[in-house]
Amino acid sequence: SAVVMEEGSPGEVPVLVEPPGLEDVEAALGMDRRTDAYSRSSSVSSQEEKSLHAEELVGRGIPIERVVSSEGGRPSVDLSFQPSQPLSKSSSSPELQTLQDILGDPGDKADVGRLSPEVKARSQSGTLDGESAAWSASGEDSRGQPEGPLPSSSPRSPSGLRPRGYTISDSAPSRRGKRVERDALKSRATASNAEKVPGINPSFVFLQLYHSPFFGDESNKPILLPNESQSFERSVQLLDQIPSYDTHKIAVLYVGEGQSNSELAILSNEHGSYRYTEFLTGLGRLIELKDCQPDKVYLGGLDVCGEDGQFTYCWHDDIMQAVFHIATLMPTKDVDKHRCDKKRHLGNDFVSIVYNDSGEDFKLGTIKGQFNFVHVIVTPLDYECNLVSLQCRKDMEGLVDTSVAKIVSDRNLPFVARQMALHANMASQVHHSRSNPTDIYPSKWIARLRHIKRLRQRICEEAAYSNPSLPLVHPPSHSKAPAQTPAEPTPGYEVGQRKRLISSVEDFTEFV
């Protein structure tokens, strides 16, 4: 048969007729292969192709491409040299491709048809291009793949890379869960390890502090508590009631339409708007009261037996805890006409967050109470924005700035309102402590230090009264110190430094 060459192609190359033996071998191979691939376009007849790359030819070592076609129900084999250009295909004639002069020997084609199974398996396991790669995943090629499931790999992101949580363990979102698992493993320790309690022994800490320079003076030496005195035992138990972190309780009120001037209507609300609910979820963490331990979680007086509701929101960081007394989460009882059960919590909070959804101005004093010092007013606006402002009593104007209003988005509203309420509550605590000038409020841990110092002074006084020969370590507060001759004046800087060093040991009130 003659071949018409394309323009620009090399000279004529004689194409030899395939021997009958080659056709029989390739026909047997075509019957084993699956003929249901995917359909081509209507211009080209339905056909199945599979590209198999052999590394070497037997005796020649030339890479070839073998295409199996099922045109007219008769499979045909096409061998081509890759750099050459194939002729145009037609549905009426068999596929013809040019070969190099080196394939002119018909014996070479017979060798190609009689490829060993080793070469076929190696060509099938190679990388296939384009559409033949999808075909190689079918059941027909499963014989050339190794048996057994593939090893499982770690989760992959859409980009093909490992997620960040699997790369950096410290930033993994499941870090707290692993800590819980470690605690569970520790709890399952053997009885021999049960006595080993991690941490620092208080006796060891005391020993280090006792021999430090801070205890060089007799006034700073630790003293032993009497065991037989019940009054001192009660004082030590009272110390446990003062937490070592700051605590805040903040009221949250929802004002519906037409309720801006009605205290009873505001306290009777059992739910609010959708934006109000989203605002609550951002204030803190939802907790169930019956599962809380009052000595570990500050509840601000809420009952854990269901008297004040089942849930509330709280927030904490390293040095403070805040609980929100939310009116809509507290039960509304029919027998309580004046809502006294709610007001006994909300009316005693220094700061209230008022979500004013009424469309009218909310005035300070609508919720009557002796300790309502500051109101954080949240007014929802259009386009997911809110107006946040402050209202306070006249005696609080020096501590709280009420002249600045803020426009905040719904997303950042819980954070801004919480921070403003916490700052206002700190100012309210300082303002409330002014009624007792001898006990200015600095912080909870300073209050613990003052309680310890008062307890020490009482013990020293009782020891001096029981044994008059012992001198008083600290003179009583009601006694007057003996007159001392004025010492020589020293520079102001040295006096300030000495006073600062003494105050650092005794108390921190002056620095606050």
Score class of each variant (00 low, 15 high):
446 I>D: 14
480 K>E: 15
264 L>M: 13
264 L>W: 11
374 V>L: 03
385 C>Y: 08
258 G>H: 13
475 P>K: 12
342 K>R: 06
329 L>N: 05
446 I>Q: 10
384 E>A: 08
504 S>A: 14
461 E>F: 10
416 V>M: 08
267 L>I: 07
397 E>M: 12
260 S>C: 09
221 K>V: 15
371 F>P: 13
468 P>I: 11
459 I>M: 14
433 S>E: 09
279 F>M: 07
290 K>N: 13
441 Y>C: 13
453 K>R: 10
255 V>H: 01
241 Q>T: 09
293 Q>C: 14
328 T>S: 04
266 I>N: 03
427 A>N: 03
486 P>A: 12
500 R>Q: 14
397 E>Q: 08
232 F>N: 08
286 L>T: 06
310 Q>T: 11
321 Q>T: 13
395 D>N: 10
358 S>P: 00
260 S>E: 08
434 R>A: 13
346 L>V: 13
446 I>C: 14
238 L>D: 15
261 N>T: 10
445 W>I: 05
335 V>I: 11
424 A>Q: 02
445 W>N: 13
509 T>V: 05
335 V>Q: 11
367 I>V: 13
271 H>D: 09
424 A>I: 02
343 K>L: 15
413 L>A: 14
262 S>H: 07
283 L>V: 01
301 G>D: 13
274 Y>D: 04
234 R>M: 09
373 F>D: 11
484 Q>S: 09
401 D>T: 04
504 S>Q: 11
473 V>L: 13
242 I>L: 13
498 R>P: 14
312 T>Q: 10
384 E>L: 03
470 L>I: 10
430 V>C: 08
259 Q>W: 01
479 S>T: 08
372 N>I: 08
442 P>R: 07
237 Q>P: 06
509 T>R: 07
262 S>I: 03
453 K>H: 13
344 R>D: 11
287 I>K: 09
324 F>S: 02
466 S>P: 15
362 F>P: 01
382 D>F: 02
303 D>L: 02
240 D>I: 02
231 S>I: 12
291 D>T: 11
510 E>T: 12
276 Y>Q: 00
498 R>V: 11
483 A>P: 09
327 A>F: 07
359 G>F: 04
480 K>C: 12
419 Q>I: 09
263 E>P: 05
281 T>D: 11
317 D>S: 03
500 R>I: 10
403 S>W: 03
419 Q>C: 08
372 N>A: 07
293 Q>F: 09
444 K>V: 08
356 N>F: 00
369 G>L: 08
312 T>I: 11
338 H>D: 15
355 Y>M: 00
231 S>C: 14
387 L>G: 02
245 Y>N: 07
221 K>D: 15
265 A>T: 04
465 Y>L: 15
426 M>Y: 06
335 V>M: 12
287 I>T: 10
356 N>W: 00
265 A>E: 06
307 E>P: 06
382 D>M: 05
493 Y>C: 12
354 V>P: 00
469 S>I: 11
282 G>N: 05
218 E>L: 13
239 L>M: 06
347 G>E: 15
226 P>T: 13
435 S>I: 10
274 Y>G: 08
501 L>Q: 12
474 H>A: 15
495 V>H: 13
316 H>C: 14
321 Q>L: 15
313 Y>T: 05
257 E>P: 12
379 T>F: 03
319 I>V: 09
433 S>Q: 10
231 S>D: 15
285 R>T: 15
398 G>V: 08
290 K>A: 10
412 N>H: 07
491 P>N: 11
401 D>W: 02
402 T>N: 08
499 K>L: 10
411 R>W: 05
371 F>N: 15
510 E>W: 05
492 G>W: 06
440 I>K: 10
251 A>G: 15
371 F>R: 14
267 L>A: 03
361 D>G: 06
388 V>G: 00
474 H>D: 15
303 D>C: 05
481 A>M: 09
501 L>F: 13
422 L>N: 00
481 A>P: 11
475 P>V: 10
341 D>C: 13
346 L>S: 05
484 Q>T: 13
369 G>S: 11
276 Y>E: 00
326 I>L: 02
372 N>H: 08
272 G>R: 03
451 H>R: 08
316 H>F: 14
376 V>L: 05
467 N>M: 14
508 F>I: 15
444 K>R: 08
473 V>F: 13
244 S>V: 12
343 K>T: 13
249 K>Y: 15
408 V>R: 01
379 T>N: 06
255 V>C: 05
320 M>T: 15
327 A>K: 04
218 E>T: 09
247 T>G: 04
451 H>L: 13
257 E>R: 09
508 F>S: 15
471 P>E: 14
370 Q>C: 15
422 L>V: 10
415 F>N: 03
257 E>A: 07
295 D>A: 07
409 S>R: 02
282 G>C: 03
472 L>K: 15
376 V>R: 01
261 N>D: 08
451 H>S: 09
244 S>N: 14
413 L>F: 00
